[in-house]
Simulated assay, not measured.
Amino acid sequence: MSGLAVEAHGLIKRFDGQRAVDGIDLAVPEGSITGVLGPNGAGKTTTLRMLLGIIEPDVGWRKVLGEEKPMRAAPRVGYLPEERGLYPSMKAADGIAFMGALRGLPLAEGRRRAVTLMEEAGLGEAITKPIRALSKGMAQTVQLLGTIVHKPKLLVLDEPFSGLDAINQQRLEGLIRAQVAEGATVLFSTHVIAHAERLCERIAIIARGGVRFDGTVAEARGRLPARVQLGTRHADGPWRAALPADTVADGRNFSFVLPAGGIEPVLEALIAGDAGIEALAIERPSLHEAFVELVGEPVPQPHLGMDSGAHAEEDAA
Rank of each mutant, 00 (worst) to 15 (best):
S2E: 15
I277E: 04
T34K: 01
V257I: 12
A139F: 13
L304G: 11
Y79E: 03
V217E: 02
L51Q: 07
I277P: 02
G41M: 04
V295A: 07
M306C: 01
V257R: 13
L155I: 00
I206N: 03
T247K: 15
H9K: 14
H288Q: 14
E125H: 09
V217W: 06
A181L: 09
A74W: 13
L230D: 07
E67R: 08
G85D: 14
D236I: 09
L86R: 03
T34D: 07
E7Y: 11
K13F: 15
G41D: 10
L164M: 08
S255Q: 11
A8R: 00
I193E: 00
D25M: 14
L287P: 03
A181E: 11
L80A: 03
D315L: 05
A204H: 08
V28C: 00
P130D: 07
E283T: 05
T147L: 07
A73Q: 11
I282H: 12
A27Y: 04
A126P: 06
P70I: 01
A184H: 01
R202M: 08
R284V: 07
G85F: 13
E7D: 05
R233D: 03
A310Y: 09
I24C: 08
D16M: 12
D250I: 10
E264C: 01
I12W: 14
S308T: 08
E314Y: 08
A108F: 04
G137I: 06
E314G: 12
M90A: 05
G43K: 05
A178D: 14
E82R: 11
F256Q: 05
H191N: 01
Q18F: 13
E264Q: 10
A275K: 01
E264V: 03
R233Y: 06
I167E: 10
Q229D: 09
P244R: 07
L65I: 13
R111Q: 10
R171H: 04
I127M: 00
K91F: 03
S89Y: 15
P302K: 06
I271L: 15
R132A: 03
T34W: 04
G210M: 09
A139H: 06
E264K: 04
I205N: 02
E283K: 13
P29H: 09
K136P: 05
G309C: 09
E173Q: 15
G43C: 02
P106K: 08
I263G: 02
F161V: 03
Y87N: 05
S255F: 09
D165A: 00
M71S: 12
V180M: 12
A290H: 08
V6Y: 14
L224D: 02
V266F: 09
T128L: 11
R223I: 02
N168E: 15
R76N: 13
G110S: 10
V6P: 04
M138F: 04
D165Y: 05
G38M: 11
L287T: 00
Q170G: 12
G215I: 02
M1W: 12
P259N: 07
D250E: 15
G163T: 02
G146C: 15
I12N: 09
L80C: 09
L294H: 01
T47H: 14
G305L: 10
